[in-house]
Amino acid sequence: MGIASEALKNFKGFNLKNLPEVEPVSPGHRACQGCGEVLALRQAMKALGTNVVMCSATGCMEIITSPFPQSAWRVPWIHVAFENAAAVVSGAESAYKAMNRKGIINSPDTVFVGYGGDGATADIGMQALSGALERGHNFIYMCFDNEAYMNTGIQRSSSTPYGAATTTSPAGKKSIGQSTWKKNMPEIAVAHGTPYVATCSPAFPIDLMNKVKKASLVPGPAYLHIYSPCPTGWRCGIEESVEMARLAVQSKVFPLFEVIDGQYFLSRKVAKPKPVSEYFKPQRRFRHLTETEVAKIQARTDADYEKLVAKCVMEAKTKEKPEQEMSIRLDGA
């Protein structure tokens, strides 16, 4: 039994009746309407509680939660540069470890979290993250993936999906938009031998909170890839944010899974997958895609999903109830 499965042996998850009331990220931040990223951050912070140290990379979640005099944080929080959240959290964690060992402080349960957007994780922060995962610090890294540099105005990142139009991958007669496929960050984290890696989505809050809680219990690094719809950058309706996150899971574009000590568990089996076109339709960043291109993306999505399912030894036992009851419905359906 690996260190992660050992730590999660007696894990009891959240359910609708025992949701924590703490709000380490308080309301009153300056996110855009319908921001899926701050929704995911809020859910994650509820699961973590207040005994945390947060290290933030530059990005939307830094800008919107911190401008004076309206800090949205009720926990220790530091914003560093764009590329080094994982390096700074390594330093904080090591210092705590040393101070605990010497008896200067007595706070063995403090959770260390580094977080950033997809650009700060998959592009510029990759080196720092890789180093921190390799050194095995006891921390959680959360990547809030909204699939482009939204803070500077929707530029492509290596996490932008194939075919999406952004301001630096414009779509037109001769350009499809983003011409490369999305970088598979969870797989890169797994390749580091990270004890706990998971993907989560704010459309499935209990699942997300459970995964964040598990990540905090694992002694060693944990990597969470959190899907974060951005209506501003994806050009969809602000009321469709959660729906987008749900459709991404249901259309197999963003499957939810956990990797505990290298073993894959599918969190949510997509029995009746929806076509990717249904997920693309409300988003204007995909509206230029032709049917052939959509078919190409569908084929790749199916193949990726098959590959993932083949890796999963069994389905994880999730305490979550069926999604109809669980997820937030804003469309009145």
Partner: peptide, 18 residues
Amino acid sequence: YPITPATEISEVMSYRLP
């Protein structure tokens, strides 16, 4: 690489250069 306030140079280059 995107950075305020130089991003527009990248953005315009992304369609003018090709």
